[in-house]
Nucleic acid binder design. Structure first.
Lengths: 228, 228
DNA sequence: AATCGTTTTCAATATCTTCTGAAACTTCTG
DNA sequence: CAGAAGTTTCAGAAGATATTGAAAACGATT
């Protein structure tokens, strides 16, 4: 498949494969720690580090996984919005390509996780609060004292409980607002903030000199950055 | 165990238990999505929502889990630094109490996850880079062309690979710097930022009127906020 | 130093998750 | 429209993780 011009080139190629494999393994391990299945993370890692579009069979072969597994993982990655389908003219296969800008990747992940995990949690918390602190809209025909405008004497334990619930709820909402504005549609938000606040660059270079230029806030490889 | 003064009080108490159970379940579900074992998350939820110190047997009974499981989960929570031991005079049992400030909780979690997952990943990435881009300190006695100052002609595929690696590495480092300054020792960082940037307050209140005051940036219950 | 109340450990077990592979399905092509 | 090429689905197998419970370790007390 790949033309190899010389022994030196062959050496490079072996190194490359080895480096890719290690990257895939590392990414897979990290994935499991964040609640993503190992294989799915590995497939993504392979697509990312490889840079070029791969088809199902490429993935199966490289990762030694079954067709079903490859198919499922790829579909899940599409749903996360961090991998996209690519078609090649004259080829009926589907190819898959990973988002190459790490910040875009990060934004997509945060957006999805918020949607999938934080939002439902917030909804549950509201429901729970309404168990002990029913909203004003509640019908209270059968409660004589409330009709008279007397509020039920508050159980201090219940009050404390509700404060804890509200604290949690308030926190989740702050997080949501922040992530929405930092991470979402319009938003190069966090990335811009990182640049402004001076968190980018310098760190690695100071510890370890590097041949290629230190990764800036725009972290796409040069090849993809033609039009800024 | 708990004195109940009246039927109304008994009703409140039942509601409270129900609300606690639901909170515990919701928190547990969320935990699993973030790579924390369900039980561990539930134990934490129980301690948080309960507010008061509980002993192993309390946890076992309330959550219907074995002694071993309770013990392990509690120890893990101690290691995460989000639960602390409490001793009562005249009682040989150990009691456990959860951090009540959600921002402190959040900081602890971010700190630990960075330490446990991101740092090792970063280390792996460095190693991987050194596979194909060995540092200047490398001995190259056996490579005539390098002795002559000629650099090996760079395989473009390898170069692109290294750029992707560096992009990832740069991203992780930016995240680490940000989390370090936002989240760490000194730092009420993120919390302060949220306040300044106007992400706190307003949101929930506008959608759902609440009896207790809207949770502010300082999210501890009143009972713990005596000395600011 | 023996006892007692408590906590920790860990091998066996139960539970949950992920993966496989073959069949069903879909979509192109001649 | 029949057949080929490619993709998805899903029941069962394999593998990973969490849980139990009983025994060991601990440490305060008599």
């Amino acid at each position: 498949m790949r033309e190899i011009g010389s022994d030196a080139m062959a050496g490079d190629h072996k190194q490359l494969i080895e480096a890719q494999d290690r990257f895939v393994a590392a990414w897979g391990k990290m994935g499991t720690a964040w609640g993503i299945s190992r294989t799915m993370a590995e497939v993504h890692a392979l697509l990312y580090i490889t840079g070029e579009p791969l088809c199902t069979d490429d993935v199966m072969e490289r990762l030694q996984i079954s067709r079903g597994n490859a198919s499922m993982s790829l579909r899940a990655l599409l749903e996360w919005g961090i991998v996209e389908r690519v078609h090649r003219r004259g080829d009926r296969k589907e190819y898959f390509q990973a988002e190459q800008d790490v910040w875009v990747l990060f934004r997509a992940i945060v957006r999805e996780r918020m949607k999938r995990e934080v939002d439902p949690m917030r909804a549950s918390l509201y429901e729970i609060r309404d168990l002990t602190q029913p909203g004003r809209s509640e019908r209270s025909d059968d409660r004589a004292d409330e009709r008279r405008g007397e509020r039920k004497p508050p159980d201090p334990a219940l009050a404390a409980h509700n404060q804890r619930l509200d604290a949690m709820l308030g926190f989740l909402e702050t997080m949501e607002k922040m992530s929405a504005s930092f991470v979402s549609p319009a938003g190069r938000g966090l990335q811009a903030a990182a640049k402004i606040l001076g968190f980018v660059g310098g760190g690695r270079a100071e510890a370890r000199p590097s041949t290629s230029r230190s990764a800036e806030t725009d972290s796409r490889p040069d090849s993809e950055r033609e039009a800024g």
